[in-house]
Amino acid sequence: MRGISLDVMEITKSYGKQKVLDKVNLKVERKEFFTILGPSGCGKTTLLHIIAGLVTPDSGKILFDGKDVTNEPPHKRDIGMVFQDLALFPHMTVAENIAFGLKLRNKSEQEIKARVKEMLELVRLNPSEVWNKYPAQLSGGQQQRVALARALAVEPRLLLLDEPLSHIDYKIKQELLAELRRIHKETGVTTLYVTHDQNEAMYLSDRIAVMNYGRIEQIGTPEELYNNPASLFVASFFGDANIVPLKLIGNEENKILFARLDNTVIFKEQPIKDGYLAYLKGVISDKVFMGPQVLLEIRIDEKHTVKTILPRNEATKYNIGDEVIVAFTSEAKIIEAQ
């Protein structure tokens, strides 16, 4: 497959008075798996539609491999897309759906048949079983796979995926995530993935852009975002974290302590060893078994609770109602309140 690079430059879009996208900039490298992560309504679909040519931006440019395509219509952009609601053609069989783009490209009957079969195998569907079925006769997970096969069949230069797994059961979702990862590795197509689910984003992406209210808040690898969030929004949206106002520890400053769960520790008594950032008193209010680990929730006061994660055997020492001391390791950060 031919993976291209994608530049989104200063893209702005308003609907009426509402600014849906505000000077969005990002660059996706060739063969990269790039994710746009943001809450519902932040403008993800709009941005994807602008990249696909389905919506015209108010200003800004879209470049494919450095070439300006802002004014190219969608049918000339040579991309693949899986829509939020799939949009399989209801009057066509699975094979016809996948062959649709190939027929428009004047491929021979034989070529098309071979390609459809290859695509069905790529998304792990049994060709002879689904070939003549209509979309309505498939399960949600199967439909998802067909939508992906259709998008990939035309050997797109760029693959756009708009929350393709949002309506899928947890178990099948995990399965499809693994397939997506494998398919990206096998095809090497530049992929732009949109989701509001941080776990999907972390699992799949080379890099992630976190979006909020039509703006990009931060771009980085999952690790960078996790370790060095640029804003409170990124910190809280990406990965579980404890966010504690410093006032709680008697500090006058209007700042916030931010710590990942694994940077949050608890003790039965004040530890002798120093080097922790702050100490808080609390009471264990909840204990959740999560397989190899146990999640503990500690109540500090009426309004504030913090969470931590302990290995299973470690957690047996603590019970609901126990008084504990919470401390934060030096990886925790102090950031400005917003």
Partner: peptide
């Protein structure tokens, strides 16, 4: 979206 899907696949 059906129409959009067809356009992206190359139909116009």
């Amino acid at each position: 979206t059906i129409i959009n899907a067809a356009r992206i696949q190359g139909a116009s």
